[in-house]
Amino acid sequence: MFDKNLEKNTIAMMDLLPDASVNARAESPLAHLDQFHSHTNIDTDSISLQEKPFLGHLLLRGNADNTAFKDAIKKVLLCELPKTLACIYTNELSICWVSPDEWLILCEGDKAYKLEKKLREALVGHYSLCNISGGQTVLVLSGHHAHDVLMKSTSYDVADCSFPIGKAVTTTLAKSQAIICRKDKTTWELIVRRSFADYIWHYLHDASSEFK
């Protein structure tokens, strides 16, 4: 028989952040760039490239047509999950659609464990929730030339008509891939894999240099 309590008790969960008693520090996948003076951040009005390190990345999977699943999500996140190719920004979270049964939730790094616990307490039945914070990072490309940098970096059409504010698309970026979210008219968030962060950073740095 399906035992709700048993299921909850048997899920192994841990806070991925070390507590203060451990002599350890988190390191972003781009931490090594500080060593090189030539790779300082690009930050002008026309183009800016910054990393948003140490965010909590939670990957949620479930059936969007399941009422119990939808209700539990709404209770914890206080909003509906985004529809196809959309992203939502709230005060504390950003949620983007990844595939028909998959969403990526971004929050402050030190709140990820608390959020994961709250979601697990609310969710029942067939779902999946995974903390993948260590596996990817967020780059923010902004400025009125950000659109021009993306135009030459991805095959996806980033024009206003096909890529409005609030859209999220997983697609190719340079020779790698990224989830590209348009936060506002001139701000784009790129969620990239940790192992490709260095490549994409250098690629975007180079691609942006003509617009500085």
Binding site: T84, L85, S99, P100, S155, Y156, T171, T172
Partner: peptide, 18 residues
């Protein structure tokens, strides 16, 4: 450009994504 319609994303995407 060679685009393929993804029935899950509900839009045409570049062939290199498939």
């Amino acid at each position: 450009m060679f685009s393929i319609y993804c029935p899950h994303c509900c839009e045409y995407r570049e062939e290199e994504e498939f």
